[in-house]
Design a protein around this nucleic acid. Structure first.
Length: 375
RNA sequence: GCCCGGAUGGUGAAGCCUGGUAUCAUGCGGGACUGUGGAUCCUUCGUCUCGAGUUCAAAUCUCGGUCCGGGCC
């Protein structure tokens, strides 16, 4: 058992929580949104820009980085912080999510996942122990265990197998992690991941078993991958109480502003998603009145910013008309400005949410935001 | 004046010889994106140079015109 808990809930409003996650390099306020920096960079932005947006934490991918540039290159820089110059806390995902992507030709086996590198065709059997070893070298603040994330459309047998493997691998991850890092303060943290799809019984049993293993935090995986939104809310609302109250809860892969609000109201503390950044690169920018497609022709000649009153770098003098022009001509500044705006939007939303949880006015804030956003 | 070649969505091309629902790319317009696919994916609209002839049926074959390119006198 750690001497002091790395996570403290400091106030609540209904089921919503505000807290502090203390990692070996940073103290991070929750609820928190992590931009995705799979390869060690938030696409189109410099580390300073990410930091200046008020971003406290990002997530990289230890498996993808172990293929390119490889552990050694990152180890020579003393780990991911030194290598990437990211001035935030860093999570790493393990490779479990790559199970539902074709890019690495995944083959799930009992002992791990067999991947084929798209860089040189080499094959890697990724095991829970290997993930721990890679993360010893990369030295992120928090590492996620290897899990088996099956596609939403899989059959019952596949889903059951995924839960079984995820539990076995979680146990092996914990054992390997304790061996390397012990359980003292200022160590790298280890989060488990629940699976079970939208099957409430299966998700419940997986969650219970993992909760007993005393991880530093709990990811909820295998959601927001194509299932109906109502099903995601249902399985979360029915299984949230099975997670330890004194541990951070991390809903993996959700980044829509309204969905994050709903999930915070159920008790989620941490999010990550490519949603704001990928949407930005594809021309969709967030505003309090809902998302707009900046590539739409009717913005030609519109001199106002993306969002009136917004303090992000993209809304200081740059017009919608200019943004439209940049996207039409594929100028990379368009991607950058849209990314800066969307990240500012979700990060400042998180700060507002935290303030309202502390004041006890979270529910009113949420209803007000949602009604404007969806009008 | 004569001979030859060409003309197909906004742009660029295929189809013509051997007649049968005009195809593709790109652009334009709209939508999507959730533990990254860094120009992605889905989708609406939009064309046979003109006229006559042959034919059940013409972008396609025949004749003539217009325009463009090349050549000859």
């Amino acid at each position: 058992m750690p001497m002091t808990s790395p996570f403290q809930v400091t106030s609540t409003s209904g089921n919503a929580r505000a807290g502090t996650l203390s990692t070996m390099t940073r103290k991070v306020s929750t609820p928190v949104f992590m931009p995705v920096a799979t390869l060690g960079a938030v696409k189109t932005l410099s580390p300073k820009e990410v930091h200046d947006l008020g971003c406290e934490m990002v997530i990289s991918n230890s498996f993808v980085l172990s293929l390119q540039p490889g552990n050694e290159a990152i180890g020579q820089a003393g780990g991911l912080h030194g290598f990437s110059q990211l001035d935030t806390a860093i999570f790493t995902d393990s490779g479990g999510f790559q199970v539902i992507r074709d890019e690495f030709k995944p083959v799930v086996k009992e002992e791990g996942v067999l991947f084929t590198s798209p860089y040189d065709g080499s094959k890697t059997l990724l095991t829970p122990e290997m993930v721990v070893e890679t993360n010893r070298v990369l030295a992120p603040d928090v590492m996620m265990v290897l899990d088996d994330c099956p596609p939403h459309s899989c059959d019952e047998k596949r889903l059951n197998g995924a839960v079984e493997r995820t539990l076995v691998w979680a146990h092996e991850s914990l054992k390997a992690h304790r061996k390397v890092h012990g359980d003292g303060p200022d160590r790298q943290l280890l989060f488990a991941i629940t699976q079970g799809g939208i099957d409430v019984d299966l998700r419940s049993s997986c969650t219970k078993d993992l909760a007993e293993m005393n991880f530093d935090g709990y990811g909820i995986g295998g959601l927001s991958i194509g299932e109906p939104l109502e099903k995601m809310y249902e399985v979360m609302s029915k299984t949230m109480h099975l997670l330890p109250e004194d541990k951070p809860r991390y809903l993996m892969g959700v980044g829509d502003p309204v969905q994050m609000l709903e999930c915070i109201s159920m008790g989620i503390d941490v999010f990550d998603s490519v949603f704001p950044t990928r949407n930005a690169r594809h021309g969709t920018v967030f505003t309090p009145n809902g998302p707009i497609n900046i590539k739409a022709t009717h913005f030609k000649g519109v001199l106002g910013p993306i969002q009136e009153g917004c303090t992000c770098p993209a809304c200081q003098g740059f017009s919608r008309s200019f943004l439209l022009h940049l996207f039409k001509t594929h100028e990379t500044l368009g991607w950058r400005l849209a990314t800066l705006h969307n990240l500012h939007f979700v990060l400042s939303l998180m700060r507002d949410i935290r303030t309202h949880i502390e004041k006890g006015t979270f529910l009113e804030f949420k209803e007000d935001f949602v009604s404007k956003y969806q009008s």
